[in-house]
Design a binder for these strands. Structure first.
Lengths: 197, 197
DNA sequence: ATCTTATGTAGACACCTGTTTACTTGCAAC
DNA sequence: GTTGCAAGTAAACAGGTGTCTACATAAGAT
């Protein structure tokens, strides 16, 4: 009865890759929900049904694990890529879409909630550059492209504290189409080329 | 040689009010620079040249101290008050002005850097409402005033993470007037009454 | 069946946190 | 001077943190 066909498919109960993934998944969920500081290695281990020491065995340190989690997330990239003319609208739609997700994208919550600690600041910086700023700049013509990208990033990043502190109830209450239009106008104001108007 | 004229002016070396103020000042600086979590009571005490226990004697707890510090700051209120028509421009000018301060306003840094912790979340929420959102709403006509105020708040709050992670170099490099114009357009897009255009 | 190796585990380590307690010291009135 | 009281101090408390070490255990090859 012991099927052993396909040889490699028969996994041991001690599965390095499986536990690694379980830890990674648990970390993504927890970091997304509580931020870097709000999560302890013991919480991660408990959620992943693994031992604390395994977290360090497989990822070296909490900060390194955080970095690895962050590297696995890149939702915004697809939003930014595409036709430059409708970029503001796509960003606005993305912003609004996040309002109607229960907890936003994991990466946005992470960026938002893990701001303080110097340990992860550099990790966050690189991610932010690679995921948002640089792709934005590539879509922009004209001078001050970097500054304009930073202004758009301001709106994107402001959504985090807004959600966390003020809640989203009041934004959800408004007409979705009108909200999208308004945000489109905001992103347009941030991104549009200077002599374009 | 011991002058003791003006009686009350001769302060004892053990001065309750003076120490209280020293602790308060130290807290404002440190919370502003490192956020709620990045500051320990011992750091505050050291900076204030006071004992750790005094912090608790005078303020009860770290969170209460944070609240008291926050209560002493209200720069934005004056910016928001004034003629409603030029509100977006005043907000933009305030935003730009902060770029050229070495570390922004203490309150903005605090709001920005202390976002995560549940202990101070309620304190921050009330402050944010009282200082930014409600005053903004009072300046707005038309429907969805609260939602529009939230969008403007998004821009304001996004400045924090922007500064912290990306730095301000690229924004400073651009023409100050052009930057103000662009931000004015962003705030206008956020705040303008729906049927106004 | 035995041995080897990697996976998983329990527990400690060293440190830091906010907070409190028991104590000392200086000031001011008597 | 002596005393009462507020201001200040040192040290501990109780809990939590990331990290590491010594050990147990299951899997796969011999």
């Amino acid at each position: 009865m012991q099927v052993k066909e396909e040889a490699e498919r028969a996994r041991p109960k001690r599965d390095r890759e499986a536990t690694r993934r379980r830890i990674l998944d648990a970390s993504r969920d927890l970091f997304g929900e509580h931020g870097y500081d709000g999560v302890t290695v013991r919480m991660i281990a408990a959620r992943a049904e693994a031992n604390t020491a395994l977290v360090h065995r497989y990822f070296g340190s909490k900060a390194a694990l955080f970095g690895e989690v962050l590297a696995g997330e890149s939702l915004l990239r697809e939003v930014i890529a595409g036709e430059p003319d409708s970029l503001p609208r796509r960003l606005a739609e993305h912003f609004v879409a996040q309002l109607y997700r229960p907890s936003g994208t994991p990466v946005s919550r992470m960026l938002d909630r893990s701001a303080g600690q110097p340990e992860v600041q550099e990790i966050l910086l690189h991610h932010l550059r690679d995921i948002i700023v640089e792709p934005l700049i590539e879509q922009l013509d004209g001078p001050d492209a970097r500054a304009r990208a930073h202004l758009a990033t301001t709106i994107i990043m402001g959504g985090g504290p807004l959600r966390r502190l003020l809640g989203l109830h009041d934004l959800r209450a408004t007409d979705q189409a009108a909200l999208t239009d308004r945000l489109t106008a905001m992103f347009t104001a941030a991104l549009a080329a200077p002599a374009d108007h």
